[in-house]
Amino acid sequence: MADQSKSPKVDSTLSKGLAILERLAASRSGKGVTELSRELDLTKSNTFRLLQTLTTLGYVRRLDNRSYAATLKTWQIGRNLVEHLDLREMAGPELTYLSKQTGEAIYLAVPEDLAIVYIDKIDSRKPIRSWNTVGGSAPIHCVGTGKAILAANYSRMRDKLVGNLTRHTDRTLTNIEALDADIAATQSRGYALDRGEYREHILSFGAAVTLPDGVAVAALGISLPEINLAEGDAGRIGALVREAAARVSEKLLRG
């Protein structure tokens, strides 16, 4: 009888090709054959052959400086996966719960490059309210849902943010070291806080929805005018969105 405890055999060529693709996808400016071969402990000839295959298949393109970069084909596959997860249906009950608990605007957002896109929402019931449209977008570094996604995916996304922290209000974090500290605080408490960094006097809280490997594919968010936030509300609202996002992540774990 075969030993069922043995790990399944891994195709070495496929694993090396995927390793190259992962490195290129995480790189902001592309990588050359020599750099990739050194980082992955591959021969230059093997690295070059794998890059040619990935280029032919449309996952990689060669740049003018002879380095290579990942194409949007990898991103498109990831986007299709997120869509097939039916996030709206999975997150719907939690959006309703957050709306009932706070009365504020509730959002479901997904990442798109250095931005987030709102794919579902429940409008605020308050006289003074914040408002965004489904299909609308915002910079990932200065809204609650975006910063929650960043906190989960920061090791892969940080380099792309350098030089791209655009200012929108006086409170926007435009220095990467300041963002580092903010992301560390987000990771510690389990939810992100936008203190009017995208729109003046509009606060937002966000928590990431993650796959079993910890990668964030979406975030739940609560947005409200600063005037609506009573003393002691920040911790309560943050905990609500953190726990709701955790329940959606649990649904993803169960499939």
Rank of each mutant, 00 (worst) to 15 (best):
E22D: 15
D120C: 02
A208L: 01
K121P: 06
S155L: 03
E112D: 14
R242L: 06
Q4L: 09
G92T: 05
G235L: 03
L240E: 07
T56E: 14
L193N: 10
T43E: 15
R88C: 09
R167E: 10
G58R: 04
S67Y: 15
L179C: 06
R88A: 04
V248P: 11
A181Q: 07
T47C: 11
A178Y: 07
N228A: 10
N164S: 12
A185C: 10
A245D: 07
L114N: 09
R158T: 09
P225N: 05
P212T: 02
L87H: 05
A2T: 00
T53E: 14
R199L: 07
L165Y: 06
T71I: 00
S27M: 06
L24M: 09
R199T: 04
K126D: 01
R125C: 05
R171A: 13
T74R: 10
D182G: 05
L14E: 13
Y154D: 01
A192F: 08
N132W: 15
R171E: 12
E89Y: 11
I106L: 06
E39T: 14
L220C: 04
A91Y: 02
I116A: 02
A26D: 12
V209C: 07
R62C: 12
I116H: 04
A25S: 14
L150W: 00
L220S: 03
G232P: 02
Q52H: 15
L81Q: 12
G235F: 02
N164R: 14
D123Q: 03
R62F: 10
I149G: 03
S223F: 00
E22C: 13
D120R: 01
R66G: 11
R189Q: 12
K6C: 05
E35M: 14
Q52C: 15
T43Y: 13
L165Q: 06
R236V: 08
G135L: 08
A26Q: 14
N132R: 11
I128V: 15
R171T: 05
R28K: 13
K9M: 07
A208G: 06
V10F: 08
G232E: 00
A181E: 10
T13Q: 08
N153K: 03
Q76H: 09
T71A: 05
P93K: 00
L72M: 09
P93E: 01
L85I: 05
A216W: 01
G146N: 00
T172H: 01
K147N: 01
T210D: 07
S37L: 14
T55L: 09
A19P: 08
Y198F: 10
A219H: 00
G58A: 06
Y97A: 08
T55E: 13
A138P: 00
A2I: 03
G196E: 03
Y191T: 08
R242A: 09
A244W: 08
A207W: 05
E35G: 13
A69R: 06
I202D: 00
L54V: 09
E250C: 09
K160T: 11
E112H: 14
F48Y: 13
V82H: 08
A234M: 04
T133A: 13
I202F: 01
L161I: 07
R79S: 11
L193I: 12
M1K: 00
A239I: 07
I128P: 15
G221F: 01
D64C: 14
A2V: 02
G92A: 11
G17T: 01
N228E: 12
G238T: 08
